[in-house]
Amino acid sequence: MQTASGARLDMGRVALLLAFLAVGWFFWDSPVLRPVKLLVVMMHESGHAIASLIVGGSVQSITLRADESGACFSALPPGVLRQIIVFSAGYLGSAVMGAVLMLATFRFRLRRLVLGAACLWLAVMGVLYARDAFTLAFCLGTSAVLGVAAKFLPEGAVEVVNLFLAAFTALYALFDFRSDLWDSQVRAGSDAALLAQHTWVPAIVWAAIWTLLGISLLGWAAYKSMHVDHKSSNMRMPPLSSARRF
């Protein structure tokens, strides 16, 4: 399939993306996937932390728990807009990370750099903001694993790892929208409910806005990443199906 711009749909990438989504869906409750879930929770909390710093606030701590919950404690200057940005950056942050993983790997060919950046991000977040042993151990341990993968995995394997992380991050973000924002009991304690207290905009409205933005972003990134643009040499890459097998 080819678009009007000349971009061709790479069926190898599409098949692998769908396969990873299926694995995440069917093995969602498997303990094997728990480290990846915690990684996405860290993306969520990092979104809050980065947004807090951008609006002029400070981050006191980030906490992860083995039950896949997390928290970011920060101090913000007064202002409704600042609160909207920071509270929105959690759920949208994981959607943004999923989109960035796909685009950086397949549109901009930054394969090893993606894993290297993730390694650095986890190490910095852990050292600066972890205040408990579990969070620090997870951040530094996962950082080390990603760093080793970036250094030693073959190029084709790096692509596969990045696509798996992107697919699982996107799936987790969608599940988060469904379970946290559209379940009325859970939504009562979510970021949407907390933001509603500051803005007087109902939590269900924030849930709708975040869900629409997150799904639109992930869909656009997947569309762009699954196509090979033959008109632009600097964006061109061989299809995943032609990568070396290991």
Results as ranks from 00 to 15, higher is better:
199 T>S: 14
193 A>K: 02
25 W>Q: 06
207 A>L: 05
96 V>I: 15
240 L>W: 09
182 W>V: 03
128 L>A: 15
194 L>T: 07
106 F>I: 08
88 S>W: 09
94 S>Q: 11
12 G>P: 00
23 V>L: 12
115 L>M: 14
20 F>I: 03
98 G>L: 10
243 A>G: 07
126 G>L: 09
220 W>K: 07
139 C>S: 13
199 T>F: 09
106 F>E: 07
149 A>H: 02
198 H>R: 15
59 V>G: 05
18 L>Y: 03
93 G>Q: 09
144 A>V: 08
122 L>P: 00
38 L>S: 03
95 A>I: 07
44 H>L: 07
1 M>E: 11
10 D>L: 08
145 V>Y: 02
165 L>R: 00
181 L>R: 08
28 W>C: 13
183 D>E: 12
153 L>I: 05
230 H>I: 09
164 F>N: 00
145 V>N: 09
191 D>G: 15
201 V>G: 05
26 F>S: 15
30 S>T: 14
227 H>N: 07
224 K>S: 04
205 V>H: 12
180 D>W: 07
18 L>S: 03
12 G>A: 06
125 M>W: 00
61 S>K: 10
192 A>F: 02
175 F>W: 10
128 L>Q: 13
140 L>K: 01
87 F>S: 12
75 A>M: 13
193 A>F: 01
221 A>W: 04
174 L>I: 15
62 I>R: 03
166 A>V: 11
152 F>Q: 08
192 A>I: 07
7 A>P: 02
217 L>E: 00
187 R>N: 10
228 V>A: 00
174 L>W: 07
48 H>Q: 10
214 G>R: 00
86 V>T: 04
201 V>S: 06
70 G>V: 08
85 I>C: 06
162 N>P: 15
178 R>I: 10
239 P>E: 09
128 L>T: 08
218 L>S: 03
244 R>N: 11
202 P>Q: 06
124 V>Q: 07
